[in-house]
């Protein structure tokens, strides 16, 4: 380690590990993990999100969870919250749909309207 640029490299890599504790988050994915969500496979959905994001090295995307969202009939339910844009809620998610959402919405910025059950707050 000899220059400030070297230090910066280490810092950027290390900030990745601190991502959960705040910092640069572009999109927050909130998976509803109530009893009905879990029963309908919310854990699988979350795992797929985490795997897909890891595989694509999307460092500015944060996956987190919340409790029952009330839309039991459409579980698993996932919110995508992007700074400055209305919240998008996807319903009836499964690992295949997750993959599509990651490619279309998160990477390319196009909402996958087929899966959307609600928008805005």
């Amino acid at each position: 380690m000899k220059t400030l640029a070297d230090l910066k490299k280490i810092r950027e890599k290390a900030q990745e590990d601190l991502k959960l504790r705040g910092g640069n988050v572009r999109i927050k994915i909130v998976v509803g993990m109530g009893t009905s969500g879990i029963a309908m496979g919310a854990r699988e959905v979350m795992k797929t999100f985490l795997e897909e994001i890891a595989a694509r090295n999307l460092s500015d995307v944060l996956v987190t969870q919340t409790g029952e969202k009330g839309l039991s009939s459409m579980e698993p339910v996932v919110d995508l919250i992007e700074e400055g844009k209305p919240k998008v809620t996807y319903g009836n998610m499964n690992p295949d749909k997750v993959k599509k959402v990651v490619v279309e919405h998160i990477v390319n910025g196009r909402v996958v309207s087929d899966y959307v059950v609600a928008t805005g707050d």
Partner: peptide
């Protein structure tokens, strides 16, 4: 990147 989605401090 890991699958970790929670930091417990």
């Amino acid at each position: 990147m890991s699958l970790k989605h929670i930091d417990l401090l």
